[in-house]
Simulated assay, not measured.
Amino acid sequence: MLFLLQFEQDVQPLLLYAAPIIFIFVALEYWFLRHDPHHHYDADDLKASVGIGVGALVINGLLKALTVGLILFCYELVPWRIPNTWWAWVLGYLGIDFCNYLAHYIAHKQRIWWATHVTHHSSEHLNLSTSFRNSWTQHIKIIFFLPVWLSGIHPVITFMCYQIDLLYQFWLHTEVITKLPRWFEYIFVTPSHHRVHHGKNDAYLDKNFGTTFILWDRLFGTFQEETERPIYGLTKPVTSNNVVYLNFHEWRDIVRDVRKAKSWREVTGILFGPP
């Protein structure tokens, strides 16, 4: 119990500290694009993004103790320890980023995991506020990070790396930034790469899953350069800006399809087959 309290004191709430800066940049982008008929903010879309984001923040707060408890349980479970050195931070961040890549990839390949991610792709616009569209059920994917929690790296390091990796993704959701220097585009995920990921163009589907490093996509064959203007949104568009619907419509459809299934094999196909 004392370790839990100490851990919560040591971990800095980076997302909370960054919130004012995030809202300032959203406001700047909104003002900068206000007269652009092709990229300007849609009022209803913005309200939906903010509503989803606020709900996600509330859920994050409610589940924080559970998340922290799981991380500490895993850390205490293994008998080895990695020294708290600079390279532990490097290993921790690489581990978190790779697990994020893997979770992101699987979320596009299996329907039950897609239900935890589809909310993020529901907008037909791409701007900084789109980054707020984090599904209210995304915490189920915490199991993909178990290898990092069980690595023996101190929980403060892994949890801080987790927050930094999440914050990095904010600036990727914009059309204001075009291309960056070639060396940067080769190593890191950029807005250009992430525009491809949000595109529903045939050439862009299921590409660029990286969150900080695009190297994973280059290594595993899921990389796609931005070669044409992306068309955003889902291949089966949603027509509602209701935040509850945007979070749970895929779960509703899964339940409906499972009820109609005539065998366990069919149920398995519904849950773990492609979306």
Rank of each mutant, 00 (worst) to 15 (best):
L77G: 09
K109Y: 06
E185K: 03
I177W: 08
L150I: 03
E226F: 06
V78M: 00
I52R: 01
V50Y: 11
T227G: 15
G69S: 11
F7R: 07
H108F: 06
W114K: 01
H194Y: 01
I71V: 15
V11M: 02
L77K: 11
H193P: 05
L33N: 04
P13V: 10
H193S: 06
D217S: 01
V118R: 05
A88S: 14
S151L: 08
F170R: 03
T235R: 13
K179H: 15
S192T: 05
I22W: 09
P147G: 13
A103D: 06
K179I: 10
W113Q: 11
N208S: 01
E124C: 07
A43S: 15
I143Q: 05
K64L: 14
Q163P: 09
W264S: 11
F3W: 00
L180H: 04
V26I: 14
Q12I: 14
W183G: 02
F144E: 07
K200H: 11
H173Y: 08
P79C: 08
H40G: 10
P191K: 04
G53V: 01
F188K: 00
H39C: 11
H249A: 02
R218P: 02
S192Y: 00
V90A: 11
A43W: 14
V238G: 10
C74N: 08
H120K: 03
L66D: 02
Y245E: 14
H120I: 00
Y75T: 04
P181S: 04
G53N: 02
E124P: 12
V68M: 05
K260Y: 09
L28C: 13
T211L: 04
A203S: 15
E124G: 13
C74F: 11
V118H: 02
S192H: 02
A48D: 00
T222M: 00
H193A: 06
H194G: 00
P147R: 12
D45S: 11
W87H: 12
F23S: 02
A88E: 03
Q163R: 04
V148M: 12
L102M: 13
H108D: 01
Y17A: 10
F170C: 03
N134K: 06
K141V: 08
N241T: 13
I143N: 07
Q6D: 14
V176W: 08
G55E: 01
F188N: 02
P13I: 09
T268K: 15
V68R: 05
I59F: 07
L94C: 12
F184V: 15
L66E: 09
D217M: 01
G221P: 11
D36V: 10
L91I: 12
V90I: 14
R256D: 09
I157Q: 02
W264P: 13
V148A: 06
V58R: 09
R218D: 02
L77I: 00
P13E: 06
V189A: 01
D10F: 05
D42G: 10
W149H: 09
L15A: 14
L62R: 11
H35W: 15
W149G: 04
W183A: 09
